[in-house]
């Protein structure tokens, strides 16, 4: 239901953030995440950054499988 795109924050200014996904850039709302900084990775949905991303999906998958089998 909620298509998300992971993107890197390039610039933050007054409630908006410029994000970059593979070179495609767009201004998105930063109103839902108050402490964004350039260099953060965020999940973008419908023109707003909805969450910070803390690791890659690959690290996450490895961590989960290790946890499951230990």
């Amino acid at each position: 239901m909620c298509v998300g795109l992971s993107a890197k924050v390039v610039k933050v200014s007054r409630g908006t953030a410029l994000v970059d996904a593979s070179g495609a850039r767009r201004e998105v709302s930063a109103a839902l995440l108050t402490d964004l900084e350039p260099g953060d990775f965020v999940m973008v949905h419908a023109g707003a950054a909805i969450a910070k991303i803390t690791q890659s999906d690959e690290e996450e998958a490895s961590g989960l499988m290790e946890g499951l089998l230990s």
């Binding site: 298509v3 795109l5 970059d20 996904a21 593979s22 070179g23 495609a24 767009r26 973008v44």
Partner: peptide, 12 residues
């Protein structure tokens, strides 16, 4: 191209 991936990714 990377940027095409970026744009199409944003728009589904």
């Amino acid at each position: 191209e990377e940027q095409v991936k970026g744009v199409t990714g944003m728009l589904g």
